[in-house]
Design a protein around this nucleic acid. Structure first.
Lengths: 145, 145
DNA sequence: ACGGCTTGTAATATGATATATTATAAGTAT
DNA sequence: ATACTTATAATATATCATATTACAAGCCGT
């Protein structure tokens, strides 16, 4: 399985808001650029708002960034849109047999290591700032793409 | 979303095979210890076999390890059971609007970074050997658990 | 203050996919 | 030859992400 597209939708949304700072960016505009259903987009935006990444007001048109791009990392977004839910990145088979010595102890023996893998992933996400992404997009656009 | 339980099923299976080296470990025994459907277990075993991690012969009862536990890492298993499919860990929203400068370039600007995150995760998995897991299980069992 | 637009959600439908189940083929061993 | 195994195809079920429909509530220009 994979990390939900909500994550890339969120990154795309933030990039769009930044690149169109001068105009009002609505959820419908974002839906048009991402080609994702407007209700889903609004759901993602709602989570980003709750995480303090963007501002919006019911009724008032347009969404804005709540903090500098260099203060927003992949990890912030990943956490905000709970791309992976609270149970963690790995999905354990749920009912190992407690009557079997291995079945009884497999969780204790693996949980910490699975956590360790997930932490490595999350730490890498903390290194990547949205400003890096926007720089790249601007470079591409500048190059005629 | 999450990494498939096939991964933890595979780890559990290998642990069970190792801890019962003296007896024949069948797919049904593994199904009993994991509490997972026997056909699923056999599917996982089949992938482990294809990856050269275990041995089995049609008709011949029992599965055995094909290499030392210290030569099997989490990554080997993760790759073998394709817990995450070929498309990668992240799921991109599929049809960004090419008529929008951001929609047109978002892929180019993010793909490499998503890859980088996935690689960090995979590298951490390469550090964890199945011998570590079995040591822990034996320790637990030895402690009366 | 009204009408049209927006954000914000609830409720439901659709679709994708992982796991479970049923069935059967084919090999081994006693 | 029989009983048990691995192996796999085909189908069913369950879960969950995304899409859709519907509507409530708030803003704002006219």
């Amino acid at each position: 399985m994979q990390i939900t597209s909500r994550f890339t939708i969120a990154v795309h949304s933030i990039a769009l808001i930044e690149c169109n700072r001068d105009m009002k960016v609505t959820s419908n505009i974002i839906a048009g650029s991402t080609n994702v259903n407007p209700v889903i987009v609004r759901g993602v935006l709602s989570q980003l708002k709750e995480a303090g990444i963007i501002n919006s007001r019911q009724g008032a048109s347009g969404v804005t960034l709540a903090k500098p791009l260099s203060d927003i990392t992949f990890y912030d977004i990943y956490e905000a849109v709970d791309s992976v839910k609270d149970e963690g990145l790995f999905h354990f088979h749920e009912h190992p047999n407690p009557d079997c010595p291995v079945g009884r102890n497999i969780h204790a023996a693996t949980d910490e290591r699975l956590r360790q893998v997930q932490t490595a992933m999350e730490n890498e996400m903390k290194k990547i700032r949205l400003s890096d992404i926007i720089d790249d997009i601007r470079r591409e656009i500048g190059a005629g793409n």
